[in-house]
Amino acid sequence: MRISYPTSVKIIKVPCTGRVDIIHILKAFEGGADGIYLVGCLEGDCHYLTGNIRAKKRVKYLKTLLDESGIGGQRVSMYNVSSAEGLRFAEIAKEFTERIKSLGPNPFKLNKIKSTRDSGRGGI
């Protein structure tokens, strides 16, 4: 199909979105990610029955944790796309990238770089 999507999107493969834990996403933000979205199978089509439903619940809870942390819950999302929907996958990549661009960089990353530069110590 040769459909392109933004190069800023890095794909991490997992067997099922149900494998993704809250700590994986928090660590990604600590690692400097500006936004993270999960792309799972369509609801009702999970090979492991309920993996994508569980991921959806986790993302909802994670949004509250990110709001508390000052990162902002809007930097994380969950989408459901079937493997036959390449076009939709690319649309989501563009849509999410636009949203994150409008939010600006991850504030943790920005301040971490500044504090490391200013104090000369790793800190946090």
Partner: peptide, 12 residues
């Protein structure tokens, strides 16, 4: 999770 949240918030 909580330690990560604290780090994120304090750095922010």
């Amino acid at each position: 999770i909580l330690a990560s949240q604290i780090r994120l918030r304090r750095t922010k």
